[in-house]
Amino acid sequence: MEIYNGKAARKLIRENKWMGPTPSLAPGFTQANLVIVPYKYAFDFFLFCQRNPKPCPVLDVCERGEYTPILTAATGDLRKDLPKYRIYKNGLLTEEVSNIVNLWNNDFVSFLLGCSFTFENALMTAGIPIRHIEENKNVPMYITNINCLPAGIFSGNMVVSMRPIPRNMVDKAKEITSQFPKVHGAPIHVGSPEEIGIVDINSPDYGDRVTFKGDEVPVFWACGVTPQVAIMRAKLELVITHSPGHMFITDLKDEELKKL
Score class of each variant (00 low, 15 high):
residue 165 I to F: 10
residue 160 V to D: 09
residue 150 P to I: 09
residue 143 I to A: 06
residue 162 M to Q: 10
residue 140 P to Q: 04
residue 149 L to E: 15
residue 99 N to Q: 10
residue 111 F to P: 00
residue 79 R to K: 07
residue 89 K to S: 04
residue 105 N to I: 01
residue 166 P to K: 11
residue 94 T to C: 06
residue 173 A to R: 06
residue 130 I to P: 05
residue 178 S to T: 07
residue 148 C to A: 09
residue 172 K to A: 13
residue 149 L to C: 15
residue 106 N to T: 07
residue 158 M to N: 06
residue 158 M to R: 06
residue 124 M to P: 04
residue 164 P to D: 06
residue 123 L to Q: 03
residue 77 D to C: 02
residue 185 G to E: 07
residue 127 G to E: 09
residue 103 L to R: 12
residue 114 G to S: 00
residue 81 D to R: 02
residue 180 F to D: 00
residue 174 K to R: 15
residue 116 S to K: 12
residue 128 I to P: 01
residue 131 R to T: 13
residue 115 C to E: 10
residue 134 E to A: 12
residue 124 M to N: 07
residue 124 M to A: 08
residue 131 R to G: 12
residue 105 N to F: 04
residue 179 Q to Y: 00
residue 94 T to S: 06
residue 129 P to A: 03
residue 98 S to I: 14
residue 88 Y to D: 01
residue 185 G to T: 06
residue 146 I to Q: 13
residue 161 S to D: 13
residue 154 F to I: 04
residue 155 S to P: 13
residue 87 I to C: 02
residue 95 E to Y: 04
residue 88 Y to T: 00
residue 111 F to H: 05
residue 92 L to H: 13
residue 147 N to P: 14
residue 85 Y to M: 03
residue 165 I to T: 09
residue 97 V to G: 01
residue 166 P to W: 10
residue 88 Y to H: 03
residue 166 P to V: 11
residue 138 N to H: 14
residue 106 N to D: 08
residue 163 R to L: 08
residue 131 R to L: 13
residue 150 P to C: 10
residue 183 V to P: 05
residue 98 S to Q: 13
residue 93 L to P: 00
residue 99 N to K: 04
residue 161 S to Q: 13
residue 107 D to L: 00
residue 103 L to N: 14
residue 171 D to C: 15
residue 109 V to I: 05
residue 155 S to L: 14
residue 80 K to H: 05
residue 81 D to I: 04
residue 111 F to R: 03
residue 135 E to W: 05
residue 157 N to T: 12
residue 142 Y to D: 02
residue 137 K to C: 02
residue 83 P to D: 06
residue 150 P to E: 10
residue 98 S to K: 14
residue 107 D to S: 02
residue 142 Y to L: 05
residue 149 L to W: 14
residue 108 F to G: 01
residue 176 I to S: 11
residue 86 R to V: 06
residue 179 Q to S: 09
residue 147 N to E: 15
residue 87 I to N: 00
residue 125 T to W: 09
residue 132 H to I: 03
residue 92 L to D: 13
residue 94 T to K: 06
residue 102 N to E: 09
residue 91 G to C: 08
residue 78 L to G: 02
residue 157 N to A: 12
residue 177 T to C: 06
residue 110 S to T: 06
residue 94 T to I: 09
residue 87 I to M: 02
residue 93 L to T: 00
residue 163 R to P: 02
residue 119 F to V: 08
residue 185 G to V: 07
residue 145 N to K: 11
residue 165 I to E: 09
residue 166 P to D: 11
residue 120 E to K: 05
residue 157 N to G: 11
residue 103 L to I: 14
residue 80 K to C: 02
residue 156 G to L: 11
residue 99 N to W: 00
residue 90 N to T: 08
residue 179 Q to D: 01
residue 176 I to H: 12
residue 81 D to H: 03
residue 124 M to I: 05
residue 128 I to F: 05
residue 185 G to C: 10
residue 170 V to D: 13
residue 100 I to A: 01
residue 169 M to S: 10
residue 168 N to A: 14
residue 153 I to R: 10
residue 77 D to E: 04
residue 118 T to C: 03
residue 101 V to Q: 10
residue 81 D to F: 03
residue 140 P to F: 00
residue 127 G to I: 08
residue 94 T to P: 04
residue 156 G to N: 12
residue 164 P to M: 04
residue 166 P to G: 11
residue 156 G to H: 11
residue 124 M to T: 06
residue 183 V to W: 08
residue 97 V to F: 01
residue 170 V to A: 12
residue 128 I to D: 04
residue 170 V to M: 12
residue 131 R to N: 12
